[in-house]
Design a protein around this nucleic acid. Sequence first.
DNA 1: TTTTAACCGAGACGGTACGTCACGTCTTGTG
DNA 2: CACAAGACGTGACGTACCGTCTCGGTTAAAA
Lengths: 206, 206, 206, 206
Amino acid sequence: MCPASKVSSLLGRPRDDKRDQAIQSAAIELMQEVGYERCTIEAIAAKAHASKATIYRRWKNKQELLVSAVNRHTFCTPPEVDQGNLRDDLIEMISEKVKNLKGPDGAVVSVLLTAAKNDPELGKLIPISIREIQDDTVMHIIDRGIKRGEISKSANIELLLEILPGIFTYRIFMTHQPVNRKFIEQLVDGILLPSLQNQRNSRENK
Amino acid sequence: MCPASKVSSLLGRPRDDKRDQAIQSAAIELMQEVGYERCTIEAIAAKAHASKATIYRRWKNKQELLVSAVNRHTFCTPPEVDQGNLRDDLIEMISEKVKNLKGPDGAVVSVLLTAAKNDPELGKLIPISIREIQDDTVMHIIDRGIKRGEISKSANIELLLEILPGIFTYRIFMTHQPVNRKFIEQLVDGILLPSLQNQRNSRENK
Amino acid sequence: MCPASKVSSLLGRPRDDKRDQAIQSAAIELMQEVGYERCTIEAIAAKAHASKATIYRRWKNKQELLVSAVNRHTFCTPPEVDQGNLRDDLIEMISEKVKNLKGPDGAVVSVLLTAAKNDPELGKLIPISIREIQDDTVMHIIDRGIKRGEISKSANIELLLEILPGIFTYRIFMTHQPVNRKFIEQLVDGILLPSLQNQRNSRENK
Amino acid sequence: MCPASKVSSLLGRPRDDKRDQAIQSAAIELMQEVGYERCTIEAIAAKAHASKATIYRRWKNKQELLVSAVNRHTFCTPPEVDQGNLRDDLIEMISEKVKNLKGPDGAVVSVLLTAAKNDPELGKLIPISIREIQDDTVMHIIDRGIKRGEISKSANIELLLEILPGIFTYRIFMTHQPVNRKFIEQLVDGILLPSLQNQRNSRENK
DNA sequence: TTTTAACCGAGACGGTACGTCACGTCTTGTG
DNA sequence: CACAAGACGTGACGTACCGTCTCGGTTAAAA
């Protein structure tokens, strides 16, 4: 995840933290420019004016580097929205987030998804990093909905936050189906709002 | 996707369809046995008693081969279930499907997802092939729910079928979060049933 | 050497001798156009509008085909010369022959030399075919020299004819050293004439 | 010819000259053991415990490697001979050299000749490398002949040294005619000695 | 201030898979 | 049967990238 923790030796020249950043930035830029397949260690080294030895001194392999780069990457955060009602807030927020995923953030998320498939431990970190950057926004919107009385406090918000990334990344990166206003409205009206308005828990439903 | 479409020439020795099958089967088996990374063209050729030339005559690169193999692959279909009520049918059906995805089908789906990221045209075929193998089962279950009066006919079933694969593949292959009975029950009770029971369309909801 | 002799079967469609010629001609032309390395069986087949099966029905492998093609090839024969004295006749004759070797005949001879290295039986045929096309000319020149009294009848002409091709092919195709008028004059004056004028046999020389 | 000349950069890990030698030695040995056709790059790499990348870093293709290997190869040098007279010295020396060409040196020379056909620049180096290893021996023999008064100082020895390799390589590798004692004696008596004893230059001869 | 040990860029190294190409054989349909 | 077309198995080619290693040279803390 992070550059291989170094047993702090008191002797010798210390590592230059600026190299880490240069290498990670080069990696992110390359992913955005040429995609995952052609984002090679050698290209990253060249772009960062670093040597392969310097890279492998910090990360134990290519995947670790890419993941650490993605994790350090600052994803675009959707802007604050307040349309006056929950439905339009959700639609607006999701639209913004989707716009980001189709832009420069897309390549980066795509890499994270690929890397995670080969590394379960890494995958477990995804929801953490993804949620750090979105949950506040979503929570804020939903809190306002609760205050307005649009939805109940007992709604299983946690569950929604777990499934939303899957719905969008699958549609955008895997099936390449359109994620337009119509789809987002259907999703909000057909799935999200019914779920949020549903106050019974799984036991009551029986 | 499929073996390089050949302009049906009447001249020359015709291609042997059995080679296609042998190669694709070898590819699928290798993916299941050793995983995507070590599923090399040479290993596939050896296992299928074919030559690399024969493979590259049909598919323009490794990815195309794997995709075609996955597409021809017969995914396990969940068995018929009838627990007497919609909720338990859904839980049972999903549990079976998830079990498959964690078993031999998993490696195959994983490849499909990776390949799709680099090939939008391929990705568009995923919902088709996925749905061919699941929709009948789901539809059957839901139809029974409608007949029993558990849900309304106007439910947006289409939408649900589009988002379900994303929810599960994301959780199983990307984040590696548990997909156990508890999660499935939460999903059914918190998302699916509320959505199916919701009869308003997006306009009425305003 | 020649198209694989076929046990004359009285049944079925007879072979079309025109195919032999078309294939051999295509082979010779390709050698002259693109050189030995890129003169492939497939290119020959395409140029001759023949199939590989037809080629392999006649010759057991590529080498046999090329050799047979070379052997059927009509090498340029040096024109008759008569400068009035043996020295100038030799110089003129050799100059003409060298000119041919540097022209279209070169590629063909070059192939013969390459092929011979891997096939001793084939190599033994070289002096025969080479000499068929040169010996008459040389003999004629030397005969006139004998009649003029310039050289003795006992000169070992046979030996000279055996070493001359080696001297020129080595210089032209291997070392690529210049084979200009000066070299030819030195060769005639320093080697050929002294040899022809020498009347002692190897025993007398002791 | 030689390993791709590297701009003597002071940066980076320097190339290991021992790899060059190991690879070239492996190439020579393979040529001698299995012949040119089966002397593959992969076999060379395996024998030299090197990787293909290392080979292709130094030579741009198989031919360049083989040529450089041949050029670095130390050909057998004929032993010193002194039979008391020029004729027998020449016969003895040539017999020894021919014996070498039919032995392990043969495969190596054969490769050089083939390679030279496709590479004029390479060919021009042949007379240099060939003569470095033979001229001293020949010169020594001829000098003794001059001192004994058997031949004149003005003999065109240069010319003889240029044509001798062609005579033998043509006969040994191309036509596969016998190169036995009888042929060598005929050559010495009929060609070499008359040429050496001839004191007229080409102008005087007119 | 000198020593020391790890840093750094550059790039060689062994390894492994890729995708291409030619060989010589085999299999169609047509004449 | 011959023939054109072209698929087939085989195996070498040359390329690209991985992760490791080895240079000369630099840099900061310890002695």
